[in-house]
Amino acid sequence: MNIGFARILMSKSIRVFLSGIVSILTPFYLKYLGFSPFLIGISIFVIVLGNVVQNLILTWFRSKINIKTYLLIVSLLFSISGFILFISSSIFLIFLSLFIGNISTTGTETGPFQSIEAGILPDLVDKNFVKRAYGIYNFLGYTFSSLGALTSSIPAYFNYDIFSFKIFYLLYGIGGLIIFINYVKFNYKEDKSTRLSLKDFDKKAKRDLYLITALFSTDALGGGFIVQSIVAYWFNLRYGISLKVLGPLFTAVNIITAISLLLAPLIAERLGNLRTMVITHLISNVFLIMIPIFSSFWISAMFLLLRQSMSQMDVPTRQAFIVEIFKREYRVSFNSISNTFRSISSLFGSPLDGVALENGLLILPFFAGGFIKIFYDFSIFYFYRNRTK
Rank of each mutant, 00 (worst) to 15 (best):
S79D: 06
I154N: 03
Y157D: 02
G82A: 12
S145K: 10
Y160T: 09
G176Y: 09
I67E: 10
I100T: 01
F83N: 01
L121V: 08
Y157Q: 06
F168Q: 09
G176F: 08
I87D: 03
Y160D: 08
L96R: 04
P155F: 02
G176N: 07
N102H: 07
I154D: 00
S75I: 11
L77C: 10
S164A: 14
Y188N: 11
I136C: 00
Y160H: 07
I178M: 06
F83A: 05
L150V: 14
Q114T: 15
L96M: 13
I167V: 14
S79Y: 05
V184C: 04
T143A: 14
F83L: 12
I120F: 11
F144R: 08
F180C: 04
L124G: 12
A156R: 00
T69M: 05
K131Y: 10
L171A: 15
F86V: 05
T108M: 11
F113G: 10
G175R: 10
I80E: 06
N128K: 15
F86T: 04
L171Y: 05
S90R: 05
A118Q: 15
Y157R: 12
S145H: 03
D161Q: 14
K131S: 15
Y137K: 01
G173K: 09
G176R: 02
F78C: 00
G141T: 02
L170E: 03
D161F: 00
K68A: 02
F144P: 00
D161M: 03
T110N: 13
I154R: 01
F95M: 15
I136N: 03
G119R: 12
G107W: 06
N187S: 12
S63Y: 08
L170K: 10
F163I: 11
I178A: 13
K64N: 13
F92C: 07
G82D: 09
I162K: 05
G176H: 10
R132Q: 07
I80R: 06
L93G: 00
L124Q: 07
I87C: 04
F163E: 13
F83V: 04
I80A: 12
V130R: 01
F113Q: 02
L171G: 08
I162L: 15
S81F: 01
